[in-house]
C-alpha cells in the first residue's frame, strides 16, 4: 500500500513522469514513423480491396486505442472512487479527450473505408452504433467535468459516468459475434491465429503500439497541465480570499 501511495502524490508523479517522457516521445516517433512508412510504401495492396485497404492501418489502431483508453479511464475512475488518489482522477480526466479523438478518427477513417468497399459511408450496424455510443459517453464525460466546478463533486460524477459507460466495452468487442453486422469478425485476436499476412500485420501492430505510446506521452503532458492548472486555480482562490 505504501508503494502505491507514493504515486498518489502529484509531486512524485511529476518527477517520475519527467524522466520517462523523453523516452516515450522518442519511441512514439520511431514506431509511428516506421509504421507509416510500412503502411504506405512497404505493405502490398490487398487482393480484393487494393490500396483502399491501407486505411486499415489507421482505422484499426484508432479503434483499439479508443477502447483501451476508455478501459484505462474506467480503471483510474474506480481507483479514485475507492482510494481517492488524486493522481488517478487527473489521469482519468486527462485521458478522455485523447480517447474521444481516437474514437472520432476510427469512425471517420471507417466511413472513408466503407464507402468504396461496402458501398456506404454509414450504416447503423451493431459495431458502428456501439462505438458511436462510446464517442458520446466521452463527450458527456468531458462536458460533465467542465460543468461541475467543485473539484471533489466533479471527480465523483465523472468517475461514476465512466464506470457506467464501461459496460459498452464488451458490447463493442463482441458486437460482431453476437449480432449480424456489416463488420467482419476479428482478424488479429482470434482462435487459430491472425487471418492477415505478416507484411500487413507488421505495419498494423507498429501503428497500434505507436498510438499507445502516443497516448502515454500525451497523457503525461495533459496530466502535468492538469496538475499545474489546478494549482493555479487554488492559488487564485487563496489570493482572492487575501
Amino acid at each position: 500500500m505504501a508503494g502505491l501511495h507514493r504515486f498518489a502524490n502529484p509531486g512524485t508523479f511529476v518527477r517520475i513522469s519527467a524522466k520517462v517522457l523523453p523516452w516515450l516521445a522518442g519511441l512514439t516517433a520511431i514506431l509511428i514513423g516506421v509504421g507509416l512508412y510500412q503502411a504506405l510504401l512497404v505493405a502490398p495492396p490487398e487482393a480484393y480491396q487494393g490500396n483502399v485497404a491501407r486505411i486499415m492501418y489507421l482505422h484499426v489502431p484508432s479503434a483499439w486505442n479508443a477502447m483501451m483508453i476508455y478501459g484505462a479511464m474506467a480503471v483510474a475512475s474506480a481507483t479514485w472512487l475507492i482510494w481517492k488518489h488524486p493522481v488517478a482522477d487527473v489521469a482519468a480526466q486527462a485521458s478522455a479527450p485523447i480517447g474521444a479523438m481516437f474514437t472520432l478518427t476510427a469512425l471517420l477513417t471507417g466511413s472513408l473505408w466503407g464507402k468504396p468497399t461496402w458501398g456506404t459511408f454509414w450504416v447503423w450496424d451493431a459495431r458502428i452504433t456501439s462505438v458511436t455510443i462510446m464517442l458520446f459517453i466521452y463527450f458527456g464525460y468531458i462536458a460533465l467535468r467542465a460543468a461541475i466546478e467543485d473539484g471533489e463533486r466533479s471527480a465523483k460524477a465523472g468517475a461514476i459516468l465512466a464506470l457506467v459507460g464501461s459496460v459498452n466495452l464488451p458490447i463493442i468487442h463482441y458486437s460482431v459475434v453476437w449480432w449480424n453486422t456489416l463488420h467482419q469478425p476479428a482478424s488479429v485476436l482470434r482462435a487459430g491465429g491472425p487471418a492477415i499476412v505478416a507484411s500487413m500485420l507488421v505495419p498494423l501492430l507498429l501503428l497500434a503500439c505507436g498510438f499507445t505510446t502516443y497516448y502515454l506521452t500525451l497523457l503525461i503532458w495533459r496530466m502535468q497541465r492538469e496538475i499545474v492548472g489546478r494549482r493555479v486555480r487554488s492559488l487564485r482562490v487563496l489570493q482572492a480570499q487575501g
Binding site: 502490398p44 458501398g119 487471418a195 492477415i196 499476412v197
Partner: peptide
C-alpha cells in the same frame, strides 16, 4: 434498393491469392 458488400476477416496480397 441497396446492396452492400461484406468483407471477410482475411487480408492477403494478390500474390498469395
Amino acid at each position: 434498393q441497396q446492396v452492400l458488400a461484406k468483407h471477410d476477416e482475411t487480408y492477403m496480397p494478390p500474390e498469395v491469392v
